[in-house]
């Protein structure tokens, strides 16, 4: 079942000044795999994701994505980032552009499509997330769930090899979470490789191949969702799962 890895991150260390945020993390993700990352606040989940596309420069370590050395200086980082979609907790749509403009920008400036081709592809990406009728709406005119789906369309339109999600639903009102998870599930069914930082446990159970539990900048435990949630080995994971139930 496991094919060749799309992401191969080894011994990632990252410090902000004296603060050690990642302390030797390994993350290997196979093609079509959906890996879930959970862990308490400040455990380094976002930092790990951001190292994978070099939004954050690891202090040391080795990262290969789709066969390309992410950290090598000769690597064309912009060409590589196009292959790594990223979705943020706070959507980060460009407020001065319509939904269509948001999706089309990188298609024009990074892929180099002409305006008409870029817009055509942007429209079909918006249609895939169920927002064909919102192409001309500005972000401020969209609900949080719709904004996040535009953000997903913006990343997916570039046809990335892997998608990174950093708490894609935690800024949403509960009734809007479902629409975003539905789109993520669709992506998953389409064979997209995904790394998801999230605390949507039901989604993890239903869709994840593997769950990683991070604490203190390390991967403490990992395995299929049933094992991890059903029979946590470490005290820290048990304590963390209990703390989630309380909410």
């Amino acid at each position: 079942m496991l094919s060749r890895p799309i992401i191969e991150a080894r011994a990632i260390h990252k410090s902000f000044g004296p603060l050690k945020v990642l302390d030797g993390v390994d993350l290997v993700v196979a093609e079509r795999e959906l890996v879930f990352i959970i862990g308490p606040s400040g455990s380094g989940k976002s930092t790990l994701l951001r190292c994978l596309n070099r939004l954050e420069e690891p202090t040391s370590g080795h990262i290969v994505v789709d066969g390309i050395d992410v950290l090598a200086h000769r690597t064309d980082i912009n060409a590589l980032r196009r292959r790594i979609g990223m979705v943020f907790q706070s959507f980060n749509l460009y407020p001065h552009m319509t939904a269509l403009g948001n999706v089309a920008l990188a298609l024009r400036r990074v892929v180099g499509l002409r305006r008409r081709d870029a817009e055509e592809r942007a429209r079909s990406a918006l249609a895939r997330v169920g927002l064909a009728d919102k192409a001309d709406a500005y972000p401020a005119q969209l609900s949080g769930g719709q904004q996040q789906r535009v953000a997903i369309a913006r990343a997916v339109a570039l046809e990335p090899r892997v998608m990174l999600f950093d708490e894609p639903t935690s800024a949403l009102d509960p009734e809007l979470v479902g629409s975003v998870l539905r789109v993520m599930r669709q992506l998953r069914e389409g064979g997209m490789t995904m790394v998801v930082v999230s605390h949507e446990m039901e989604f993890a159970r239903a869709a994840a191949d593997r769950v990683l539990f991070m604490d203190g900048g390390r991967v403490i435990e990992q395995g299929p969702p049933d094992c991890l949630f059903g029979a946590p080995k470490s005290d820290r994971l048990r304590a963390f799962l209990r703390s989630l139930e309380r909410h």
Binding site: L55, F88, L93, L105, R154
Partner: peptide, 29 residues
């Protein structure tokens, strides 16, 4: 917001394109 830079850069936009298309239009406004 920093998230605007991050969204643009993570989609492969160069620093210059990010400035010209994403940051400066909002900054000027």
């Amino acid at each position: 917001p920093r998230g605007q830079w991050e969204a643009a850069r993570s989609s492969g936009l160069s620093a210059l394109d990010t400035l010209g298309w994403v940051v400066l239009p909002q900054a000027v406004r």
